[in-house]
C-alpha cells in the first residue's frame, strides 16, 4: 500500500511542478532552474504553519501559494525581465536562474536554522506526515488532496486558457508577443502573472510534499533533474504533456527505485536520480518533442488514414 501512496503523491506533486516549469518556459522562454526552490519555500511555510503557528498544515496552502508566488514574481521583475530587455541569451538566463537557486538555498538554510533556534523545531529532513488527517482504512488525506490538486489544476488551466478572455490573451501573447502588444495587450502583465502562478503552484506542491516526504533546503538541487525530466518527457511546450510527463517520471522513479532495491539492496537508493536522467536522455534521443510530439504524430497519421 505504501508504494501506491509514495508513488501517486510524489507523481502528482511532480506533475504540478512540471506544469509550473513548463508554463514559464512556454510563456517567457526561460528554463527556470530555481523552480524547485519555490517548492522548498512552500515546504517551510507548511512547517511554520504547523509547528510554529500550531495550525493545520492545510492552512499553509494559500500562504505558500502567496509567498512562493511573490518570490517568483519578484525574481522575474528584478532579474529576468531586465536581462530579457537587454536581449540576453538563453544561457545567461539559465545561469541567472541557477544563481537564484543557490541564493534561495542560502535563504532557506537561514530560515531553517532560524526556525530551529527560535522555536526548537526540527527543521531539516523534517516531515509533517504525523500531523496529517487519516481517513478511513489508513488513507492519508494528503493522498486525496494531491490528486485533487492535480485534477483541479488540469481543469482550471483548461478553463483559464480556453474559456476566459484572459486566457485568450495569454495564448495570443505566447504565440506572437509583438502582435499582441500592437493590438493593445499588456504582455508584461501576462508574463508577470504567469511567473506568479508558476511560483504559487510550486509553493502548493511544497506543502503537499512536506505532508508525506522529508523536507530540506538541499532538495532545491536534488529534485531539479526530476522536474526537468518530467517537463521534457511532456514536450516542454504543452501543459498537458507536463502533467503526463510528471506523472510518468514520478511513478517510474518510485516504482523503479523500489524494484532496484529488491534486486541490488538498499545502497542503490543513492542512485535514484539516474531514473529521471534516463527518461530525459531517452526522450531527447528518440522523441525530442516529447509526448506532445507523439500526440501530433498520431493525429497526423489518423488524418492521413481518413483521407486515404
Amino acid at each position: 500500500m505504501i508504494i501506491i501512496y509514495d508513488g501517486l503523491i510524489y507523481a502528482s506533486v511532480l506533475a504540478v511542478l512540471c506544469v509550473g516549469l513548463t508554463l514559464t518556459y512556454k510563456i517567457t522562454s526561460v528554463p527556470n532552474f530555481s523552480h524547485m526552490a519555490f517548492a522548498i519555500l512552500g515546504m517551510y511555510m507548511a512547517l511554520i504553519t504547523s509547528k510554529v503557528l500550531g495550525l493545520s498544515v492545510y492552512a499553509a496552502l494559500p500562504l505558500a501559494f502567496a509567498a512562493s508566488g511573490l518570490v517568483s514574481l519578484l525574481f522575474y521583475l528584478a532579474v529576468i525581465r531586465i536581462l530579457q530587455k537587454k536581449k540576453s541569451s538563453v544561457i545567461s538566463l539559465i545561469i541567472a536562474t541557477l544563481a537564484f537557486d543557490i541564493f534561495m538555498i542560502g535563504v532557506l538554510n537561514i530560515l531553517a536554522d532560524s526556525i530551529r533556534n527560535g522555536f526548537q523545531v526540527l527543521s531539516r529532513d523534517f516531515t509533517l506526515r504525523s500531523t496529517d488527517i487519516v481517513l478511513a482504512d489508513g488513507l492519508p488525506l494528503v493522498f486525496v488532496v494531491s490528486i485533487a490538486v492535480l485534477v483541479g489544476l488540469a481543469l482550471g488551466l483548461y478553463y483559464l486558457l480556453y474559456r476566459t478572455n484572459y486566457g485568450m490573451r495569454m495564448r495570443a501573447s505566447i504565440e506572437n508577443e509583438t502582435l499582441a502588444r500592437t493590438l493593445g495587450i499588456d504582455t508584461r502583465l501576462i508574463f508577470s502573472m504567469s511567473w506568479f502562478l508558476s511560483g504559487g503552484l510550486a509553493g502548493i506542491a511544497g506543502v503537499l510534499m512536506a505532508l508525506w516526504f522529508q523536507g530540506d533546503p538541499s532538495l532545491a538541487m536534488i529534485m531539479l533533474p526530476s522536474i526537468f525530466a518530467g517537463s521534457i518527457v511532456g514536450g516542454f511546450t504543452s501543459i498537458y504533456g507536463a502533467i503526463l510527463g510528471g506523472l510518468l517520471v514520478g511513478l517510474s522513479e518510485i516504482i523503479g527505485t523500489t524494484a532496484l532495491v529488491d534486486v541490488f539492496g538498499y545502497w542503490i537508493v543513492q542512485y535514484r536520480p539516474i531514473i529521471p536522467f534516463i527518461a530525459m536522455i531517452a526522450t531527447l534521443l528518440v522523441l525530442p518533442g516529447g509526448l506532445a510530439q507523439l500526440v501530433t504524430i498520431i493525429r497526423q497519421r489518423r488524418l492521413k488514414g481518413k483521407n486515404a
Binding site: R171, N176, T182
Partner: peptide
C-alpha cells in the same frame, strides 16, 4: 504588420 499579423493558433 507585413507578416505574422494574425494569431495562427487562435
Amino acid at each position: 504588420a507585413q507578416r505574422k499579423n494574425v494569431f495562427q493558433e487562435l
